[in-house]
Computed example of a mutant assay.
Amino acid sequence: MSEPLVVALSKRQLEAYNRADLDAFCACYHADVMVLDHEGTCTTRGMDAFRERYRTMFDAHRDVHGRVDERIVLGEHVVELEHWSRVRKDTGERVSGTVVVRYTEQDGLIRIAEFLRPRG
């Protein structure tokens, strides 16, 4: 049985993220990508804003890494438990965290990325 497209896209974008490869990372996302926060508020919309968001993050950090520990797939949606870390280039400080993310595929690309984080 072949892997659902949304899972393949999620894996591909994570591999690109871990290499800090902005072009390969953005290639996994829809031109009208939407990034939602834990309240469902759109914080980033469209490829230009999305590319700038991640360009800024990749430029400011080294050793960018994410890993998926759990994955649930339902149709065009995948929900993942992700652990991430990165090192600030200016201070050398390592920052890390855990996030639940929902990716939704549309037109063969990731259209929605919703990040659920603990409050505080």
Rank of each mutant, 00 (worst) to 15 (best):
N18Y: 05
G97S: 09
F115I: 12
K11A: 11
D59I: 11
V87N: 05
E93H: 13
A27K: 06
A49T: 00
A27S: 02
E76Y: 11
V101M: 11
E76I: 08
A20Q: 07
V87T: 04
N18P: 14
L109R: 15
E39L: 15
R117T: 13
A16D: 05
L81F: 08
G46D: 10
V6N: 04
I110T: 10
V95H: 05
L5P: 12
R62E: 09
R86G: 08
D69W: 12
D63I: 04
L9K: 06
P118V: 13
V78H: 00
V101Y: 09
E105C: 15
R55P: 14
V79Q: 04
V95K: 01
R67D: 07
W84C: 01
D69G: 13
R62S: 12
D21R: 01
V73T: 03
Y17T: 02
V64F: 03
T56C: 04
D59Q: 13
A113M: 05
H30M: 01
T41L: 07
C28K: 00
V99A: 15
G75Q: 09
L109S: 14
P4V: 15
T44H: 02
G92Q: 01
K11M: 08
G75M: 02
D63G: 01
A31C: 09
D37K: 03
A31W: 11
I112C: 06
A20Y: 01
T56S: 03
E3N: 09
R119Q: 15
E93N: 13
L36Y: 08
R88I: 05
R86N: 06
V100S: 08
S85L: 10
T98Q: 12
F25Q: 00
L22M: 06
C42G: 04
R53D: 10
G120Q: 06
H61A: 09
G46L: 10
D48N: 02
M1P: 15
G40C: 02
E15K: 09
D32Y: 00
D90L: 04
E82P: 04
V35Q: 00
D63L: 00
S10N: 11
R12Y: 11
H83C: 12
V35M: 09
V6W: 06
W84T: 02
V78P: 04
D107T: 03
I72C: 01
H77N: 07
M57C: 14
T98K: 12
D63Y: 08
R51E: 01
K11Q: 12
T44F: 07
N18H: 05
D107A: 13
L74C: 06
L9S: 06
P4C: 14
E82A: 05
V99N: 14
A16W: 02
I112N: 07
